[in-house]
């Protein structure tokens, strides 16, 4: 079953003097359990596409269906609530609240979901263990490395029990070994927990880990390739 369905999506930014056609007709369907990368040159519309999938931005035309619900007509407040329960986000940077510890950052999304205090505590620790940071639970983001911060962000995305996780260039600020290990984590979560990931990247090494590669060029999908498992 498709958890993400886009039909005829276009996006034109009209704020600038010349309108920018960032997306020009995207049809896309992503199923549960996929591990999909959106790649393409800078300015090709990757971030715009992810924002529209994630309900952070509205398309100019077309419909977005998440878990069977059309989110393009939702009111802003409904959309926020929808994101809270259906979509996990990992951004390139500035993901975490600097004054909260790793555990509290994870816990925060549970607080927003009105999960009781004791359950929050337990679930946050579980998630941190899953991303391999149980022993750094009490550290603030500034005390963690960039890779660890991104792991916490992945943990926070997981904690809300979303249908899928969107990650816009999650490894862009990481060195290659750290990037690899974040990818390992995401892949592991995808394989063992069937968590769906959709992420954008520039990085060829990240690209080749994906099992589906969507190439964006000038606001259009120019190739949609499925690769087989590369590891035995």
């Amino acid at each position: 079953m498709a958890i993400i369905e886009l039909q005829g999506i276009t996006k034109t930014y009209k704020e600038s003097s010349v309108p920018v056609h960032a997306l020009r007709g995207i049809d896309l369907s992503i199923d549960k359990g996929e591990f999909a990368a959106i790649v393409g040159p800078s300015g090709s519309g990757k971030t715009t596409l992810l924002n529209i999938i994630g309900g952070l931005d509205r398309p100019t035309n077309g419909t977005v269906r998440i878990d069977g619900t059309d989110i393009s007509t939702m009111k802003p407040e409904e959309l926020i609530d929808f994101r809270l329960h259906h979509i996990g986000f990992v951004f390139q940077s500035y993901n975490l609240i600097p004054v909260l510890t790793a555990k509290e950052n994870v816990e925060f999304v549970l607080l927003l979901q009105n999960v009781s205090r004791s359950e929050r505590d337990q679930q946050a620790m579980d998630v941190l263990a899953r991303v391999g940071l149980a022993e750094r639970a009490g550290d603030r983001p500034s005390e963690l490395s960039g890779g660890q911060q991104q792991r916490v962000a992945v943990g926070r995305a997981l904690a809300s029990k979303p249908s899928f996780v969107l990650a816009d260039e999650p490894t862009a600020n990481l060195d290659s070994t750290t990037a690899e290990s974040l990818l390992d984590l995401m892949e592991h979560l995808n394989r063992d927990r069937a968590m769906t990931f959709v992420f954008s990247t520039h990085d060829p090494r990240v690209m080749k880990r994906a099992r589906r590669i969507l190439t964006l060029e000038d606001g259009m999908i120019t190739s949609d390739a499925r690769q087989d498992e590369q590891r035995p």
């Binding site: 407040e77 809270l84 986000f89 809300s160």
Partner: peptide, 16 residues
Amino acid sequence: VREFGVLMAIGMKRAR
């Protein structure tokens, strides 16, 4: 600014 953006992205309602 960015932090509130992230908070609302992950699901913090405006009233909160």
